[in-house]
């Protein structure tokens, strides 16, 4: 162990902390704003369309996002894994990823002129297997069926 190793570790930790925190804040700001914007658009996990939508077109919409965790959070998680308990730093990461994926799906549905997305499903998968059992990057996929009123 030397000065250099310790310095590299501390620099990585600081970079992860400051950039990660900045990114998280601006991402939450964007999520909150977009959620507010599209508040009137309903997303349902129900699988039976309401009877009021008698004759409509249905099409699949999806939104996905791959997020990675910063060095600071990964270090925190590694320590947390020794003592156990809530991994608070990862909760917000996954929360952000899910809401982002849902928003992307919602935006796609709105672009297609849909009135509702039915049967919403959200799936989370860790896409970097191996690498020291650490959750490196996580993909969240949100998909559902956009119900678009038929023209004519």
């Amino acid at each position: 162990m030397s000065w250099i190793e310790i310095a590299v570790f501390l620099v990585l930790l600081a970079l992860g902390y400051f950039f990660g925190r900045y990114a998280e804040r601006s991402h939450y700001r964007s999520i909150l704003w977009r959620e507010q914007e599209s508040l009137g658009f309903p997303l349902l996990t129900l699988r039976t369309p309401p009877s009021s939508l008698a004759r409509c077109d249905a099409s699949l919409v999806a939104g996905n996002v791959v997020v990675s965790v910063d060095y600071f959070k990964r270090f925190l998680a590694a320590l947390r894994a020794l003592v156990g308990g809530r991994l608070k730093s990862y909760e917000s990461l996954l929360d952000r990823a899910r809401r982002e994926a849902v928003l992307r799906m919602k935006e796609q549905a709105m672009d297609r002129g849909a009135v509702v997305v039915m049967g919403v499903r959200i799936e989370t998968a860790s896409i970097s297997k191996g690498k020291g059992q650490a959750i490196g990057s996580i993909e969240v996929l949100a998909y559902g069926t956009a119900i678009v009123p038929s023209r004519g």
């Binding site: 925190l76 320590l79 003592v83 809530r86």
Partner: peptide, 13 residues
């Protein structure tokens, strides 16, 4: 999510 400051958890751990 938790509103707790991440540095608090960091220093505790």
């Amino acid at each position: 999510t938790s509103r707790e400051h991440p540095l608090r958890e960091f220093f505790l751990l």
